[in-house]
Amino acid sequence: MFDGIIQNIFNALQWGSFYSLIALGYCLVYGVLLLINFAHGDVFMVGAYLAFFLATCLLGAGSLPHWLILALIVPLTMILTSLVGVAIERVAYRPLRRKGANKLYVVITALMCGLILEHANLAIFGASRRSFPTLVDQATINLAGLSVTNLKMAVIVVAFLVFILLELVISKTKIGMAMRAISYDRFAIPLMGIPPENIIVFTFALGSGLAGLAGLLFAMSYPVLDPYMGAMIGWKAFIAAVVGGIGEIRGALVGGFLLGFVEIMAVAFFPSTFRDLIAFTILLLILWKKPTGLFGVSRYQKI
């Protein structure tokens, strides 16, 4: 019984980590552009596939030790996924922004980009699922009498580390300052000698890189890949970001873990088919009580 509860908590933390890592990307882009990048869930899927191809290639390349392959895949997946995110920004969002297009059209463009990623994957690689190769042997580690698999622990630790790093970047570095500033007043950014496009590209690279990392970790934990794997998890992470208060990275973290816990607890007490119904109902209730999300503040009216 006790062990079951502990396992549930670790599962919740693990899923919360996935949701948080993806939610951070929604949050960063929203903070800078006030745009919900609905393609983001599919960028996560692309990250998982990129990790899959990299792993398969490196495993096929010969006798590289598994730890080295993993050490190579993590940065490579993040960099390549960043490039995908930046390319979407360049090809799809930037031209609309230059023309001063209404937000609605940009959001619809984002949805289309997501669908294009899904269906390009389907068209090129077919509908068959792929299984991610085993890079790390699953082992159970004991922490003060609690047993947890090494992979689960790694996912949770990585999510927290990423959050701490991101918090540091945003609060302490000049580019972080510029990201906060641009969300307050985009007009004044070039007057500071800062090219706004640089900030936007950096934000997309960062958010997509984190989605790539999430994709890799997810594929290692649940090694079955299909073109639609990013859709549902992307929606959920988006909702987690909104519940946390979109635009606030603390909100993305808390929202992600909250969703993880609500889901796992729902399954613990109800039939598993009730999971999403219960989870979304609870999130709806939170938004009903606090429409700006847990950490969100309504924006100050500018004079």
């Binding site: 000049k174 969300s183 307050y184 007043d185 004044a188 500071m192 000698g193």
Partner: peptide, 27 residues
């Protein structure tokens, strides 16, 4: 060349020091 815009347009969510630091971004 610098512009001090109408309505000031300072970054209200940043501290005074951060506003000043941000202006040195490209220096």
């Amino acid at each position: 060349v610098a512009l001090v815009p109408e309505g000031r347009r300072i970054f209200g969510n940043l501290s005074v020091m951060e506003n000043l630091t941000l202006a040195t971004y490209a220096r």
